[in-house]
Computed example of a mutant assay.
Amino acid sequence: MIAIINTGCANINSVRFAFERLGAGVDVISDAQQLSQYERAVLPGVGHAKVAMARLIDGGWQQAINEFQRPLLGICLGMQMQCEHTAEGDTRCLGIIPGEVSELEVGNLSAPHMGWNKLSITQQHALTKGIKEDEQVYFVHSFAHQPNEATLATSEYGQRFSAIVAKDNYAGMQFHPERSAKVGARLLQNFIDWQV
């Protein structure tokens, strides 16, 4: 069973339906004490990082997530909240994925980065199995993780940034796999199959 963490900072139905289409059992949970009962978990998120982190901390999720020893996937803002710090609201985050999140330097491009963009695989990993170079996924974001040793795949919009990250049992996808058609479904299946 997969737990989708409900902190009130995301439309979680599209994530739930995407996993259900793959045959996965899914529960949406709102109590941090429930998390340890699940085989894997998803932390979705949209909105402002400072508000989202405050909700995580107030709900007791910070400790529950840090103590979770099975696969946990952060999506979009959920990925950013796993990192050390974000420039959005100068916010200290969970610190389980190394690195900083900063505002995308888009140059003459429009912000936020919204729409389909290519993935470039930088490290082979169970989460990127079967994903071909230059396959596209769907992004909506203004802030991004700076590529480092945790980066499994990058994308580019004004600058190169991390699209997929992982460390130990924690992973993150900056894009929305639940809105990324067949490629997104493959990535979610990879998460279902991931053994750590």
Rank of each mutant, 00 (worst) to 15 (best):
Q82A: 12
I75Y: 11
I97P: 05
A52Y: 12
K50D: 15
E84S: 09
A41M: 07
E84C: 02
I75M: 10
C83T: 15
T91A: 08
P44W: 13
Q34M: 09
V106I: 10
E39A: 07
L56G: 02
L104I: 15
P44T: 05
Q34K: 12
M114L: 13
V106N: 04
Q33K: 14
L77Y: 07
E105I: 15
E88S: 06
A52F: 13
G45M: 10
A64T: 05
H113A: 04
S110T: 05
A49S: 11
V46G: 05
A64K: 04
I65F: 09
G107H: 13
P71D: 07
M114E: 00
N66E: 12
Q80W: 01
C76E: 03
G89C: 07
T86C: 10
G107W: 07
G95V: 12
G45L: 04
S30A: 13
A111M: 15
L77W: 13
V51M: 13
C93S: 03
L73Q: 08
V106F: 11
E100M: 12
S36E: 13
E88G: 03
L73W: 09
H85A: 00
H113P: 12
I65K: 07
V101K: 10
Q80R: 02
V28S: 01
S30F: 00
I65W: 07
V101Y: 09
D58S: 14
P44F: 11
R92S: 14
M53H: 09
I97W: 08
L94C: 06
M81H: 08
G45R: 06
H85C: 02
V26K: 01
A87D: 14
Q63I: 08
A49G: 07
S110K: 13
L94P: 12
P98A: 06
E88M: 03
S30M: 05
S30G: 13
Q34C: 02
R40P: 03
Y38H: 01
A111G: 12
W61L: 04
I57Y: 03
A32H: 12
L43W: 06
I57F: 01
I75N: 00
G78M: 06
E88A: 01
V101S: 04
I29T: 02
R92H: 11
R40M: 10
R92D: 15
V26M: 01
A52R: 11
Q33M: 09
A41W: 02
M53L: 08
K50G: 15
A64V: 09
P112G: 07
I65D: 05
Q63K: 14
A64S: 11
E103P: 03
G89H: 14
L43M: 09
F68P: 03
